[in-house]
Design a protein around this nucleic acid. Structure first.
Length: 830
RNA sequence: GCCGCUAUGAUGGAAUAGGUAGACAUAGCAGACUUAAAAUCUGCCUGGGGCAACUCAGUACCGGUUCGAGCCCGGUUAGCGGCACCA
């Protein structure tokens, strides 16, 4: 009865591989379709159950498109540089290259065991010199175009990884990867000028088929705001440039605030009267970690600069100047005009420091709270020539006035910062730059790429913030490619995000030695038609790769402005929470759990983790139920976009379903070539449903439709129907379908057979249950022929015994009827 | 605080464009088969009332639009995710 999934799956995986059944063709008549999933980081732990969810979903889409006659590119690879491998290597004294090789072997085995239709001939590995040669090449192009530069600046330093982090890698003041506190450190770092692309990274989202939350998050992260830069003066004669999004409130600026690091503070220092106080504040601000700065954001602190005043350019008023860490040195000009009446933060600060609050937009009570409305309900007051205008009208007027006076101009600012691109670690792409005492920074010659990592004994990170590579003198010391004199290599390496920023291009032409990919292949395969990946990469990998792609477009390497035409995202797979208080009967046990685990104890499902012991290993599931069941279950688990909880019990339901399909097939022995009359409309409806659901990324309801179909036809299924069932099920559970297909003697191989067609005409039923409402309430159904005229439908309904009885009881007469064709009748009775 | 999202049985979730709420599955209950268990098969499975035909209520809460609202509009509550002193 039960089918032998282990042998069947091994058999078909071997056949697919030997026949290269799913290899993409580099050209041809068929329409191309490039389906992409995020390649994994090959960790020592192996594949997590989270991986198969997106992989299976895209495999289903790839398989269905292939069956529908498209030339599908569905590749896989490994994003293998990175810290966990390096840390594992250090701990176990194994070279990271060996660790990586072993991990990849394990990942490949697991991916193959799931029966994915990847084109394995295109597999890539970011740590392969043949691959990272081109990562380095792209870096050189960025460098030559002024988009890679070295700068000394405060950077995020992870105290545990002993390495700098990009802004995108710092989450709530701690390291995204290890959770250790991040501190600010002044260091010279390689930077990539992603800010140059800020506008295009927002504007070009418009034409893309990305899910809205991805667009919203990227737009938010880039953080574009429109306003003006305005020149204030100080009583000491210096110009103080501020940025504001509310130039309309200029008359309400009653003090100014500089960031503690602002250069004017140092310049003024010897003319100020409270230097010790100022210096103490600066020192305290500098010592704060990001975490402290955000945690302590309730109370406003600051110091007034005693001995200097600002001058408001619109009214000539002298106003005090403070330093405070609520003004950031890294945003805008690092200095603000404070309008306490109309900005919450300024208001709080003004209350704390007793500054004047002047209302310039009517509508609130500015002594009670800041009035921050920006819409056109507010009317300007106390604002000279702006009085009487709405906020909306005032903004262009004041901006025009400022530019005419030469004291201000419109300005757009972004929250996005340039990308900190160097890491002080061993296991990454070496940066192909040489530092020469005579010539300065010299890029390596492209012909000399790849620049390999030296083989070393120790790759421990250093406490002083130098890369481990700096200790390898044979490697570090080189001749300058420019003057031939003694020079040194750059010893920092690239971040993990480098290799993944362009990997989708390499799949198009993975073995090319002359270029990252040939023009023809880039032209043929670009763009990626459908890219699915995690939301956690929205402001990291996804943004970075869009940036690199746009740059490559600008220098003529790639043919499209955007890398990915469509982006979707899957929900996480969670594990059952062993600490969930719902599991405890006694109140005191619950209370103890809540005291111990906090709000986590209130969640029935949480992220899987080793410490909770709720991790599910795909190998175990495959061993017990088979890959087809695993695939089916991760698709059936729930709405693809939402988080779902792994339920060991529910897996069984999917196995049962496959057993039923197997059993049903065993009983089919006729030689029918057409659907039976009784099953025709159901067959066509199911083809339609499965086809559309796959295209709309609704695998859960596609599977439900197949289950419904089997529930209905398993006693009567004929040979023609079985064929269609196998084809519809094949993308989800390819092994069992190919096996039954072969055993039943259908032609060819099921998983590359032609996708079944449906006709709208045949989806229709000849008889339909019409829903009947009286005054909008359901009162029953009446079975009748389809496509009757409205009059006939109403006549049938009124003639129905049950309905007529109800109407008689109800009294009154029918004053109106609403008929929805083949669906419903609503009788309005009064 | 800002941005985005969600709320449906015991549980995961269905419900194309406003038209039969709870498809499909899990768990549970009852029965068949079995020495027994597992597996399998059949039936029940939102709540209240009724022997029953039937009937009343029901998609977080309050209100609205509509012949008709889980779906649209206004408000509220709770939760999730992202950003967060960004001027």
């Amino acid at each position: 009865m039960n089918y032998d999934f282990a042998n069947i799956e091994a058999k078909w995986q071997k056949i697919w591989e030997e026949k290269k059944l799913y290899a993409a063709q580099d050209g041809g008549e068929k329409e191309k379709f490039y389906a992409l999933v995020e390649f994994p980081y090959p960790s020592a732990a192996g594949l997590h159950v989270g991986h198969p969810r997106p992989y299976t979903a895209m495999d289903i889409i790839a398989r269905k498109k292939r069956m529908a006659g498209m030339n599908v590119l569905f590749p896989m690879g490994y994003d293998a540089f990175g810290l966990p491998t390096e840390n594992f290597a250090i701990k176990n004294h194994i070279h990271p290259r060996i660790v990586t090789e072993n991990n990849i072997k394990n990942f490949r085995r697991q991916l193959k065991a799931l029966g994915y239709s990847f084109d394995w001939d295109r597999e890539i590995n970011t740590t392969d010199p043949k691959y990272f040669k081109w990562t380095q090449w792209i870096f050189l192009q960025l460098y030559k175009n002024g988009l890679a530069y070295k700068a000394k600046m405060p950077v995020n330093w992870c105290t545990s990884c002993k390495c700098v982090l990009a802004n995108e890698e710092v989450v709530e003041g701690v390291c995204e990867r290890c959770g250790a506190p991040v501190v600010r450190k002044e260091k010279s770092q390689w930077m990539l000028r992603i800010t140059k692309y800020a506008d295009r990274l927002i504007d070009d989202l418009e034409g893309l088929d990305f899910i809205d939350r991805v667009k919203a998050q990227q737009t938010n992260w880039i953080g574009r705001s429109h306003g003006a830069e305005v020149k204030f003066r100080s009583t000491l004669g210096d110009e103080i440039l501020v940025y504001t999004t509310r130039p309309d409130t200029l008359f309400g600026a009653t003090y100014m605030v500089l960031s503690p690091e602002h250069p004017l503070v140092a310049k003024w220092m010897d003319r100020l009267n409270n230097v010790p106080e100022i210096k103490a504040y600066q020192a305290a601000a500098a010592a704060k970690s990001d975490l402290e700065r955000t945690e302590l954001n309730k109370e406003k602190t600051g110091v007034k600069l005693d001995g200097v005043m600002g001058i408001n350019p619109v009214n000539g008023k002298e106003i005090p100047i403070f330093i405070s860490d609520y003004v950031l040195s890294t945003y805008g000009t690092g200095a603000i005009m404070a309008v306490p009446a109309h900005d919450d933060r300024d208001w709080e600060f003004a209350k704390a420091f007793g500054c004047e609050i002047v209302e310039v937009v009517a509508g609130g009570n500015v002594q009670e709270a800041a009035f921050t409305l920006k819409d056109d309900t507010g009317i300007m007051v106390n604002s000279g020539f702006l009085n009487g205008l709405t906020v909306k009208e005032a903004i262009p007027v004041i901006i025009k006035w400022l530019s005419e006076q030469g004291i201000g101009e419109p300005k757009t600012n972004f929250k996005l910062r340039d990308w900190v691109f160097s890491r002080q670690r061993y296991w990454g792409e070496p940066i192909p730059i040489i530092h020469c005492p005579k010539c300065g920074e010299v890029p390596m010659k492209e012909a000399d790429l790849p620049l390999l990592l030296p083989d070393v004994e120790s790759y421990e990170p250093t406490d002083d913030g130098e890369s481990p590579l700096s200790a390898i003198t044979d490697w570090v010391n080189v001749k300058c490619p420019c003057c031939g004199g003694d020079a040194k290599r750059e010893t920092d390496t690239m971040p993990q995000w480098a290799g993944s920023s362009w990997y989708y291009l390499r799949y198009m032409d993975p073995h090319n030695d002359e270029a990252l990919a040939s023009k023809e292949m880039l032209e043929y395969w670009s763009p990626v038609d459908w890219y699915n990946g995690g939301m956690e990469h929205t402001t990291l990998h996804l943004l970075y790769s869009r940036f690199w792609h746009k740059f490559l477009y600008d220098i003529g390497v790639v043919p499209t402005k955007e890398p990915y035409a469509k982006r979707t995202s899957h929900g996480m797979i969670l594990g059952e929470n062993p600490h969930y208080v719902g599991n405890f009967e006694k109140q005191e046990d619950k209370d103890a759990m809540i005291a111990k685990y906090g709000s986590d104890a209130l969640r029935p499902a949480v992220k899987m983790s080793k410490s909770l012991g709720n991790v599910v290993n795909p190998d175990d599931v495959i061993r017990e139920y088979g890959a087809d069941t695993m695939r089916l279950y991760v698709m059936f688990i729930g709405d693809f976009e939402k988080a779902a909880t792994w339920s060991p019990k529910a897996v069984k339901g999917c196995k049962r379903f496959l057993d039923r399909v197997w059993a049903m097939a065993e009983n089919v022995s006729d030689m029918e070539t057409e659907y039976s009359k009784a099953n025709t409309s159901l067959m066509h409806k199911t083809i339609k449903k499965v086809t559309e659901d796959i295209d709309n990324l609704k695998p859960n309801t596609a599977i439900a439709a197949l289950m419904t179909l089997i529930n209905q036809i398993d006693k009567t299924c004929n040979r023609a129907e079985l064929k269609t069932v196998l084809q519809l099920l094949s993308p989800f559970a390819p092994h069992i379908c190919d096996e039954i297909w072969e055993q039943k003697g259908y032609e060819g191989i099921c998983s590359v057979s032609a996708w079944p067609q449906y006709s709208e005409e045949k989806c229709k039923d000849s008889e339909i249950n019409i829903a009947v409402q009286v005054n909008g309430k359901m009162r029953g159904t009446v079975l009748m022929d389809a496509d009757l005229s409205d009059e006939q439908v109403v006549a049938n309904v009124v003639a129905d015994e049950k309905i007529s009885r109800f109407l008689a009881k109800q009294g009154g007469s029918i004053v109106k009827t609403i008929v929805v064709k083949n669906k419903l009748v609503n009788l309005i009775v009064k």
